[in-house]
């Protein structure tokens, strides 16, 4: 299996500072600040409605925050459009899979490279010169680096709609990787997956970090996985950061236990979470 050359992509540094977002009178985010250090996995957790997805949507450019800044490698991207962020090296997957159902797996993955390609309309109509060369380079690269890596070679020509949920999530990750991201944002990468699929996905996420050298920011409810693979955990509740730090430290934080359980007993939280993990 061919792996991408190490150091192909320089991991990005994301800094979110003082971010506030409100919908009418409802404050979705209040003064949120955290960092994703280059080459690490940062997990964003919190109860339902804590503002995790809103925060994701601010970072990927769907929501305009009222205050605060989002910086990618020091460059302020708070007010740029989503396509510009894609060019800057930001890629994301969605909680409810957002693949293009009418296309094959291969075409979905190829779409990820769109912003990096140069073929113009006339070249595309003639399929000659640049268009043809670029398409062939893309195909070779997608095959070697992504399809092999994520073990989806058997489904490359299948329409996405015919795939299982777990495979669709994997194709979405593949498409995000095709964007040559320097920061990869995963919105609930293992939601609704069985244990085997979850373990596969966790392995792929770790491989992406280690072999591709990409910084990763993920929202996830599966505590087992969050505690296993992340380097840094940020806990949100009611739109505010209530705790952040290494997984072990966050686990022991009474405020986190209070947010999840209503009572401040970390041991009880861990017992319940592991019970949920067993049941799944």
């Amino acid at each position: 299996m061919t792996r991408p050359a190490p150091g192909l992509l320089a991991p990005a540094h994301l800094a979110v500072s003082g971010l506030s977002l409100s919908f009418g009178g409802l404050k979705a985010l209040t003064d949120v600040s955290f960092e994703v250090r280059p080459g690490t996995i940062t997990a964003l957790i919190g109860p339902n409605g804590a503002g995790k997805t809103s925060l994701f949507n601010c970072i990927s450019g769907f929501y305009r925050p009222r205050e605060g800044h989002i910086r990618l490698d020091g460059q302020d991207i708070t007010h740029t459009h989503p396509p510009a962020r894609a060019k800057a090296g930001l890629a994301r997957t969605f909680q409810n899979i957002a693949l293009f159902k009418g296309m094959t797996v291969l075409d979905n993955i190829k779409l990820g490279r769109h912003a990096h390609m140069k073929t113009n309309l006339l070249q595309a109509l003639a399929y000659w010169g640049v268009a043809r060369r670029e398409e062939m380079e893309l195909r070779a690269e997608v095959e070697r680096q992504i399809i092999d890596f994520l073990e989806i070679d058997h489904i490359r020509n299948k329409p996405v709609a015919s795939l299982s949920y777990g495979l669709q999530k994997r194709v979405e990750l593949a498409r995000a990787l095709a964007m040559r991201p320097r920061l990869l944002m995963l919105d609930e990468p293992v939601a609704g997956m069985n244990r085997e699929e979850t373990e596969d996905m966790a392995r792929f996420i770790l491989d992406v970090k280690e072999e591709w050298g990409i910084s990763i920011l993920m929202v996830e409810h599966d505590m087992g996985m969050v505690m296993d693979i992340s380097d840094h955990v940020v806990v949100l509740n009611f739109g505010k950061v209530i705790a952040q730090g290494p997984p072990a430290q966050v686990q022991g934080d009474p405020q986190v236990a209070a947010a999840y359980l209503g009572s401040g007993n970390p041991a009880e939280l861990m017992r319940r979470l592991s019970a949920v993990g067993e049941a799944a």
Binding site: S60, G61, F62, H81, P82, P83, A86, K87, A91, R92, F94, A98, L99, F100, K101, G102, M103, D107, K110, L111, G112, H114, A115, R175, M179
Partner: peptide
């Protein structure tokens, strides 16, 4: 491919650049 992406899901097309 971009045309088809816009047809199928314009929001995620935008995220792809």
């Amino acid at each position: 491919r971009a045309f088809i992406a816009i047809r199928d899901r314009d929001i995620s097309a935008e995220v792809l650049g």
